[in-house]
């Protein structure tokens, strides 16, 4: 009687609702603190970035077309599936050296963040927009509109770092290309499985594991990306990335995943229309 063959997981990217390996074929070894190899995680290349942005752009119109209430329901579903996977995600963080209690706390914060943004979806217009008082015979309305495709430089610390940027962005009707490396590479890859089973349409969330320094300039330069969140960008790279983003009029923010109205408003624009009050 021999032992059962170990079924090891291939940690891949999540682009357009599918799980491809990197186009480049490159991987990064992820090890335990004592140097034992855990997995070779896909390392995204600039062409994966290109494909992810294309997928995000393709999915944006339909995602924006859903009602905020429906987007909220779907994000809540993400929280539900995260809850079911919490032990696996915490385990993957512990394996790379995160203390057990910290790993559990990180996953729980991530789930809570998803619930927070799920509830926010149908309140955004009321909080950020509304009827404005104007001195004239007009009905003056402000509404929120999504920016389009958002690039998210997620901190490489864990699940919360990714979820707390992805959720507010998609809550407002954007589609995202999120990039995370470091210890978060394993959980970022697993998050793809969570999103894929949460009724989130393909292409709305694209997750890349890779090197920030290598890939962020491509995202900052990309004409078809409307916002870049530099919350997790490496120290010292911000000035260069901001200059690149400014070149194509991209909005640059550092929300840090804070759960407040400012974060929500970072991911949308306000459109104000004047209706004649009497026709």
């Amino acid at each position: 009687m021999t032992g059962r063959l170990e079924v090891r997981k291939t940690y891949k990217l999540f682009i357009g609702g599918a799980f491809p390996r990197s186009e480049s074929g490159r991987t990064t070894p992820v090890t335990t603190p004592d140097g034992r190899l855990l997995a070779h995680v896909a390392q995204a290349s600039r062409k994966d970035v290109r494909d992810a942005v294309r997928a995000a752009r393709g999915a944006q119109g339909a995602w924006d077309g859903r009602t905020p209430y429906n987007r909220g329901q779907i994000i809540y579903r993400v929280a539900e599936v995260l809850e079911g996977r919490s032990a696996q995600l915490a385990g993957e963080l512990e394996a790379v050296g995160v203390a057990s209690a910290d790993a559990r706390a990180d996953v729980e914060r991530a789930i809570d963040a998803a619930v927070y943004w799920a509830g926010f979806a149908d309140k955004l217009d009321a909080l950020a927009g509304g009827v404005n008082p104007v001195a004239g015979p007009f009905l003056n309305l402000s509404t929120t509109v999504p920016l389009g495709v958002c690039a998210l430089a997620c901190p490489g610390t864990g699940v919360h770092g990714v979820v707390s940027l992805v959720c507010p962005a998609i809550m407002a009707g954007n589609t995202v290309v999120a990039l995370a490396g470091g210890p978060a590479a394993l959980v970022t890859s697993t998050l793809g499985e969570v999103i894929a089973t949460s009724d989130v349409p393909g292409g709305v969330v694209n997750l890349l594991t890779g090197d920030h320094a290598q890939l962020l300039p491509w995202l900052a330069d990309h004409d078809d990306v409307d916002l870049i969140d530099l919350s997790g960008a490496p120290d010292g790279s911000a000035a260069d990335l901001e200059a690149r983003a400014a070149d194509n009029l991209k909005r640059t923010v550092r929300t840090g995943g804070a759960e407040d109205l400012l974060t929500a408003m970072a991911f949308c624009e306000i459109r104000t229309v004047w209706h004649p009050a009497r026709i």
Binding site: V53, R57, W218, D221, H222, D223, D224, N248
Partner: peptide, 9 residues
């Protein structure tokens, strides 16, 4: 240019 463009343009 070394940058990705967009179809909108």
């Amino acid at each position: 240019t070394g940058r990705y463009g967009r179809t909108h343009d």
